[in-house]
């Protein structure tokens, strides 16, 4: 979950810990707003519903996001990371099992 430092940076950091990181210092901040997709809105909503039911805390969601390996973390969209993190938390808590998820993935839609 962590990467070696770049020259001039701290000796060590986790890949989501982005403050001052040289890799992005010359990247422009894109001003254009993106519309959220139905998937984005649903993921956002399910996160809140699970929190209301006491099945997930925001801190757990963050840990789930941080557990995504670096290359994938930067390849996934914001809400794609959330979707992975929601599954991570519910599996870690034992609310659902990997077998249940695999069965749902295999079942016809």
């Amino acid at each position: 979950m962590a990467v070696a430092a770049e020259p001039g940076d701290t000796p060590f950091r986790a890949h989501h810990d982005l403050g001052g990181v040289r890799r992005f210092l010359c990247t422009p901040v894109e001003r254009e707003e993106h519309t959220l997709s139905p998937f984005d809105r649903e993921v956002d909503a399910l996160r809140q519903v699970l929190a209301h039911h006491g099945l997930l805390r925001v801190d757990e969601l963050r840990r789930g996001i941080e557990s995504i390996p670096e290359e994938r973390y930067f390849a996934l969209s914001y809400y794609q990371r959330w979707a992975v993190a929601l599954a991570f938390v519910l599996l870690s808590r034992g609310v659902i099992s990997g077998d249940e998820l695999r069965a749902a993935l295999a079942a016809p839609a």
């Binding site: 995504i68 992975v84 659902i96 993935l105």
Partner: peptide, 20 residues
């Protein structure tokens, strides 16, 4: 499973399990 499943498919499966 988490690292290789496309997030959209994972999310759809997650919803089905939670609803079921």
């Amino acid at each position: 499973l988490l690292e290789t499943t496309p997030p959209e498919a994972l999310f759809a499966a997650l919803k089905r399990v939670l609803f079921a």
